[in-house]
Computed example of a mutant assay.
Amino acid sequence: MAKKLEMKFENQDGRTVTISLDDPIEPVDVVALNAAMDEIVTQNCFTSSGGDLVSKKEARIVERNVADIEL
Protein backbone atom coordinates (compact mmCIF):
# COMPACT_ATOMS: atom_id res chain seq x y z
CA MET A 1 0.00 0.00 0.00
CA ALA A 2 1.55 3.24 -1.15
CA LYS A 3 0.62 6.42 0.67
CA LYS A 4 1.15 10.00 -0.46
CA LEU A 5 0.65 13.36 1.14
CA GLU A 6 -1.09 15.63 -1.36
CA MET A 7 -0.88 19.38 -0.79
CA LYS A 8 -3.28 21.32 -2.98
CA PHE A 9 -2.85 24.98 -3.85
CA GLU A 10 -4.67 27.51 -6.00
CA ASN A 11 -2.70 29.24 -8.75
CA GLN A 12 -3.17 32.67 -10.36
CA ASP A 13 -5.62 31.21 -12.91
CA GLY A 14 -7.80 29.82 -10.09
CA ARG A 15 -6.88 26.22 -10.90
CA THR A 16 -5.75 23.59 -8.42
CA VAL A 17 -2.09 22.53 -8.34
CA THR A 18 -1.08 19.41 -6.39
CA ILE A 19 2.32 18.73 -4.85
CA SER A 20 2.71 15.12 -3.69
CA LEU A 21 5.18 13.58 -1.26
CA ASP A 22 5.70 9.82 -0.90
CA ASP A 23 5.57 7.97 2.43
CA PRO A 24 4.36 10.74 4.75
CA ILE A 25 4.93 10.53 8.48
CA GLU A 26 1.71 9.70 10.29
CA PRO A 27 -0.06 11.04 12.16
CA VAL A 28 0.40 14.27 10.24
CA ASP A 29 1.53 17.26 12.30
CA VAL A 30 -1.16 19.71 11.16
CA VAL A 31 0.66 22.76 12.55
CA ALA A 32 3.88 21.87 10.71
CA LEU A 33 1.97 21.06 7.51
CA ASN A 34 0.15 24.41 7.60
CA ALA A 35 3.44 26.21 8.18
CA ALA A 36 5.12 24.35 5.30
CA MET A 37 2.27 25.12 2.91
CA ASP A 38 2.27 28.79 3.96
CA GLU A 39 6.02 28.90 3.36
CA ILE A 40 5.65 27.39 -0.12
CA VAL A 41 3.19 30.16 -1.03
CA THR A 42 5.26 32.92 0.65
CA GLN A 43 8.60 31.87 -0.88
CA ASN A 44 7.00 31.45 -4.32
CA CYS A 45 9.27 28.44 -4.90
CA PHE A 46 6.92 26.61 -7.30
CA THR A 47 5.07 27.78 -10.35
CA SER A 48 2.59 26.14 -12.69
CA SER A 49 1.31 26.60 -16.22
CA GLY A 50 -1.41 28.78 -14.66
CA GLY A 51 1.05 31.01 -12.84
CA ASP A 52 2.33 31.24 -9.29
CA LEU A 53 0.72 29.48 -6.35
CA VAL A 54 -1.35 32.09 -4.51
CA SER A 55 -3.09 30.20 -1.70
CA LYS A 56 -3.34 26.83 -0.01
CA LYS A 57 -6.51 24.86 -0.64
CA GLU A 58 -6.35 21.50 1.15
CA ALA A 59 -4.13 18.60 2.13
CA ARG A 60 -4.85 14.90 2.33
CA ILE A 61 -3.30 11.47 2.66
CA VAL A 62 -4.02 9.26 -0.34
CA GLU A 63 -3.62 5.50 -0.13
CA ARG A 64 -3.41 3.35 -3.24
CA ASN A 65 -3.91 -0.40 -3.25
CA VAL A 66 -2.83 -2.43 -6.26
CA ALA A 67 -3.72 -6.08 -6.73
CA ASP A 68 -2.15 -7.90 -9.66
CA ILE A 69 -4.41 -10.23 -11.61
CA GLU A 70 -2.76 -13.30 -13.02
CA LEU A 71 -3.76 -13.90 -16.63
Results as ranks from 00 to 15, higher is better:
Ala2His: 10
Lys4Thr: 09
Lys4Trp: 07
Glu6Pro: 01
Met7His: 00
Met7Phe: 00
Met7Lys: 00
Lys8Asp: 08
Lys8Asn: 11
Phe9Cys: 03
Glu10Ser: 13
Glu10Cys: 10
Glu10Gln: 14
Asn11Tyr: 01
Asn11Glu: 02
Gln12Phe: 05
Gly14Arg: 07
Gly14Lys: 08
Gly14Asp: 07
Arg15Phe: 11
Arg15Val: 09
Arg15Ser: 15
Arg15Trp: 09
Arg15Ile: 08
Thr16Ser: 09
Val17Pro: 01
Thr18Gln: 04
Ile19Phe: 05
Ser20Met: 06
Leu21Val: 10
Asp22Ala: 10
Asp22Val: 05
Asp23Val: 03
Pro24Met: 03
Pro24Phe: 01
Ile25Ser: 10
Ile25Arg: 08
Glu26Cys: 00
Glu26Gln: 02
Glu26Asn: 00
Pro27Lys: 03
Pro27Gly: 05
Pro27Met: 06
Pro27Arg: 05
Pro27Phe: 04
Val28Pro: 02
Val28Glu: 01
Ala32Asn: 08
Ala32Phe: 04
Ala32Trp: 02
Leu33Arg: 01
Leu33Cys: 06
Asn34Phe: 06
Ala35Tyr: 06
Ala35Pro: 05
Ala35Thr: 11
Met37Gln: 05
Met37Asn: 03
Met37Cys: 07
Asp38Leu: 08
Asp38Trp: 08
Asp38Arg: 09
Glu39Cys: 08
Ile40Lys: 02
Val41Arg: 02
Val41Pro: 02
Thr42Gly: 10
Gln43Pro: 03
Gln43Met: 13
Asn44Glu: 12
Asn44Lys: 11
Asn44Trp: 02
Phe46Lys: 02
Phe46Asp: 03
Thr47Tyr: 06
Ser48Met: 03
Ser48Gln: 03
Ser49Asn: 14
Gly50Trp: 05
Gly51His: 02
Gly51Asn: 04
Asp52Gln: 15
Asp52Pro: 09
Leu53Ser: 00
Val54Lys: 04
Ser55His: 07
Ser55Ala: 15
Lys56Leu: 13
Lys56Tyr: 12
Lys56Ala: 08
Glu58Ser: 15
Glu58Val: 07
Glu58Tyr: 12
Ala59Ile: 04
Ala59Asn: 12
Arg60Asp: 06
Arg60Phe: 09
Arg60Trp: 04
Ile61Tyr: 01
Val62Asp: 04
Glu63Asn: 07
Arg64Thr: 15
Arg64Val: 15
Arg64Phe: 12
Asn65Phe: 15
Val66Gln: 10
Val66Leu: 13
Ala67Gln: 14
Ala67Gly: 12
Asp68Gln: 15
Asp68His: 14
Asp68Asn: 14
Ile69Pro: 04
Ile69Leu: 14
Ile69Lys: 14
Glu70Val: 14
Glu70Arg: 12
Leu71Lys: 13
